[in-house]
Computed example of a mutant assay.
Amino acid sequence: MECINCKSKNIGQISQNHYYCWNCFVEMHREQDVFHIHEVDLDGSLLPLNDLFSEDERRVQ
């Protein structure tokens, strides 16, 4: 698996269908065959980054 944001392979699994990139610190959630990407804010909330990537880029390969 590769990070959609930085292309790193340094990905950890948080829970089923939830992943975290240790290189660029984004969280990815897989829903059906599309990933949803979030940045973790300082207060722990998640900020969506889906608008930065097309659906084709976020599609599971």
Rank of each mutant, 00 (worst) to 15 (best):
Asn10Cys: 01
Gly44Lys: 09
Arg59Trp: 05
Asp41Val: 09
Gln32Thr: 09
His38Ala: 11
Phe35Trp: 14
Ser8Asp: 14
Asn10Val: 11
Arg58Glu: 05
Arg59Ser: 04
His29Gln: 14
Phe53Ala: 05
Glu2Asn: 12
Gly44Ser: 06
Leu49Gly: 09
Ser8Gln: 12
Asp51Gly: 04
Pro48Glu: 14
Ser54Lys: 04
Phe25Asn: 15
Gly12Ser: 11
Phe35Arg: 03
Glu31Gly: 00
Glu27Ala: 01
Lys9Cys: 00
Met28Pro: 02
Pro48Thr: 08
Leu49Val: 10
Phe25Tyr: 15
His18Gly: 00
Ser54Phe: 07
Phe35Ser: 01
Ile11Tyr: 04
Ser15Asp: 08
Lys9Glu: 14
His29Leu: 04
Lys7Phe: 06
Glu57Ser: 01
Pro48Leu: 05
Cys3Leu: 11
Gln16Ile: 03
Glu57Cys: 01
Glu55Thr: 11
Val34Lys: 10
Pro48Phe: 03
Asn5Trp: 04
Asn17Trp: 02
Tyr20Pro: 02
Leu46Met: 10
Gln16Ser: 12
Cys24Gln: 01
Asp43Ile: 05
Asp41Arg: 15
Tyr20Met: 11
Val34Leu: 06
Leu47Glu: 05
Asn50Glu: 15
Ser8Phe: 09
Tyr19Ile: 11
Asp51Phe: 08
Asp51Cys: 02
Phe35Lys: 00
Ser15Tyr: 08
Arg59Gly: 08
Glu2Cys: 05
Glu57Ile: 02
Gln16Arg: 13
Ser45Gln: 10
Tyr20Ala: 06
Glu27Thr: 06
His38Phe: 13
Ser15Leu: 14
Tyr19Phe: 06
Gln13Tyr: 03
Arg59Val: 02
Glu27Lys: 15
Trp22Ser: 02
Ile14Lys: 10
Gly44Leu: 05
Arg30Asp: 00
Leu49Asp: 01
Tyr20Thr: 01
Cys6Val: 13
Phe35Val: 07
Val40Glu: 14
Cys3Arg: 03
Cys24Val: 03
Gln61Phe: 10
Lys7Ala: 06
Ser45Val: 00
Phe53Lys: 13
Tyr19Pro: 01
Arg58Asn: 13
Cys24Lys: 07
Asn23Ala: 10
Tyr19Trp: 09
Met28Ile: 05
Met28Phe: 09
Val60Gly: 06
Asp41Pro: 00
Gln13Met: 08
His18Ser: 05
Asn10His: 11
